[in-house]
Simulated assay, not measured.
Amino acid sequence: MAIASYIRKNFVLFGALTANLGIAVAKFVAAGMTGSSSMLSEGFHSVVDSLNQVLLLYGEHRADRPPDREHPFGYGRELYFWAFVVAILIFSVGAGLSVYEGYVHWVSPEELTDPTINYIVLGVAFLMEGTSWGIAIREFASTKGDQGWWEAVKQSKDPSVFIVLFEDSAALAGLIVAAVGVWASHYFDAPRLDGLASIAIGLILAMVAVLLAREAKGLLIGERADFALIERIRAVVDKQDWITAVNHVRTVHTSPKQVFAAISADIEDEVTMGEGERLIEELEDQLREAVPELSSIYVRPEKAEDAASPPGE
């Protein structure tokens, strides 16, 4: 039962991993039979993507560990670390090998052979990658709400979904470039064009890697929750009749679906320390009910005039 639940939770990752493993084997076979540089680059691309999915699944597993003495807020950010590693792998291995192979085949082009097997493998790969891309699109669309696609990526706190979306988009673009490279090299009888296609695939991967690294870095450093969630917290606190002012609400994601909130509030002078403790406990219960994402809450009684001006919530 636990295994089935784990697979459902990470359906996007398992779908992408299955597709990439099968595609990688087919691409390497085709590259070996035809000597195509762009097909070899695509093979490396699929291997890197497969390794990326394994790392993200490992990160998901590690992030699910409960808090302990050493990590009182849990291990959720470990997923963000592995997302950053994935971006580095795409850049260094995927993009690096593709550009290198392209350069080698540009300098020393191989004799052209029948490209039929390349077209078959590329067609099958496009169908499989397209299926994985469709799954990632549906999953991401179900969580982005009314936001635009790019804005949703920037605001997303779950890298396992948007990384697969980026990878599959890059894979589809790479397959198109590889197909054009194979066709052009035969049509113009110019083997060097296949090497040029390999370099283009490497540049696509490098661009995707830079975008992913930027997003993963922000998550790793620590990003606030979205404004809608912050306003829900503020509304619950503001409606308490013993609180005269909400000075600020500061949040940070400790995992994709867990948020730590630090709240500064001005409390009525008549409230005693004993009453304040009881009222704050009740407030925390109300907040957890209204905002299930809250994993930790810190409420600081503080005069409005003494509260530090927040840089942004």
Results as ranks from 00 to 15, higher is better:
D114G: 07
V124W: 08
L203F: 11
Q147P: 07
F84M: 09
V252L: 12
P310C: 07
P310L: 13
S255Q: 04
E60G: 06
G195D: 00
E305I: 13
L283G: 00
E305P: 12
I90W: 07
D49W: 01
A141Q: 09
E268N: 13
E277S: 14
A170D: 01
F81G: 11
P72L: 10
T143G: 14
G130W: 02
A26W: 05
E215A: 02
R224K: 10
G102T: 00
D269G: 10
S295Y: 01
G32D: 02
I135W: 02
S108P: 01
D266A: 14
W82K: 04
P66G: 14
P191M: 12
L56F: 06
F260H: 09
T34H: 01
T251N: 10
W150K: 10
L40M: 15
H45W: 01
G274W: 11
E302C: 10
G15F: 06
L40S: 11
Y6T: 09
G35V: 01
W133N: 07
E231Y: 13
P301R: 03
V164C: 12
V236S: 10
A125C: 02
G32A: 05
S255H: 11
A26D: 09
L165M: 05
T131G: 15
L56Q: 00
F140P: 03
A190H: 12
V161H: 08
D114M: 13
E270S: 12
K9A: 15
E111K: 11
G148S: 05
T34Y: 02
P256K: 12
T143L: 15
K154Q: 13
L40K: 04
L205K: 02
L283P: 01
E305H: 14
V249M: 04
P159S: 02
Q53G: 07
I23T: 03
L212M: 14
S142Q: 04
L283M: 13
G32P: 05
I263T: 03
V208C: 13
A63Y: 03
G94P: 03
G195R: 05
F91N: 08
E275N: 03
K27C: 13
R62K: 14
V161Y: 12
I221D: 10
G222Q: 02
F260N: 04
A304L: 13
A213E: 06
